[in-house]
């Protein structure tokens, strides 16, 4: 049996005294499209940042492509990094570089290829994301959907084994969003990469997912196939699927403390734990 692409075991993390992720465990298999879903504040972005090695967990382990990301040497971490691609929600393109330069950047930084090969690979990726001929434009000249596609092209330029996409279809019209979904499916089928997608777009999740992890208040509420998630009789999952709002429970003490501007008590594991991979 092949090695899992991602193994997370009993991951816990805090922001101040807030318990953000609570005993999260999951695996992502090779060639799998794995969706992380949840409402705002459910912890999905924090989980993504952990998978990218940007945060240090309070407890628990994260293995990426067989390596414990917090136990490997800097050199091993660098090697691991070249096998991962990330398409950020905002695109995170360098505004001072052309689209082509943005996409070629990882190859120039991490591979020893001649410029002709880098140029061909860059233009190949632009073809794949349907941005052929746009290499000389600047990011400011692109539409929202084009920025998402350019970010995806940069994320896959090194042909990663593991691709992360943060809200790939957020803010896009349904047709463009659907084309991004199709692209994700084609990338998986052609390259066999594992793809982790963080989204709250239900249509997109159901279209592309092999499995869906539903996070709620930092806990894994469900982790199952699309059909199983759809059939779930869990009220919170059905609320999420049917876009029903939930009345937040009121903790009178915490509420009064917030109104009085009192600080939270512990900052042991605050955002200062942030660390670049």
């Amino acid at each position: 049996m092949s090695q899992s692409s991602i193994v997370v075991e009993n991951l816990n993390t805090f922001y101040g005294s807030r318990h953000i992720l609570k005993n999260v465990s999951l695996t992502v298999e090779p060639g799998e499209i794995f969706i992380i879903m949840g409402g705002s504040g459910s912890g999905k972005t924090t989980l993504l940042n952990h998978l990218l090695g940007l945060l240090i967990p309070t407890s628990g382990t994260i293995r990426i492509l067989g390596k414990d990301i917090h136990a490997v040497s800097a050199l091993e971490r660098q090697a691991l990094r070249t096998r991962m691609g990330v398409a950020f929600q905002s695109g995170a393109l360098f505004s001072s570089m052309s689209v082509g330069e943005n996409i070629a950047l990882p190859l120039r930084e991490h591979a020893e290829l001649d410029e002709t090969t880098i140029g061909i690979v860059t233009r190949l990726k632009l073809e794949v994301v349907s941005l052929a001929g746009f290499e000389n434009l600047m990011p400011a000249e692109l539409s929202g959907g084009m920025i998402k596609r350019a970010a995806l092209a940069r994320a896959i330029v090194m042909d990663p084994r593991l691709l992360f996409c943060d809200e790939p279809s957020a803010g896009l019209d349904p047709v463009v969003a659907s084309s991004i979904d199709d692209l994700i499916l084609r990338l998986r089928d052609a390259m066999g990469m594992s793809i982790v997608v963080v989204t709250h777009d239900l249509d997109s999740a159901f279209k592309i997912a092999d499995r869906i992890c539903v996070l709620d208040k930092g806990e894994v509420l469900a982790l199952d196939t699309v059909d199983a998630i759809r059939r779930s009789d869990n009220e919170r999952i059905q609320n999420l699927l049917n876009r029903r709002t939930e009345e937040a429970e009121v903790d009178p003490d915490a509420y009064l403390r917030r109104l009085m501007g009192e600080k939270e008590r512990s900052t042991r594991f605050g955002p200062q734990a942030r660390k670049g991979l």
């Binding site: 290829l113 061909i120 190949l124």
Partner: peptide, 11 residues
């Protein structure tokens, strides 16, 4: 075969 291999074939 990755994209750099394909690029070699293209060239």
């Amino acid at each position: 075969i990755d994209s750099s291999g394909i690029a070699s074939l293209v060239e």
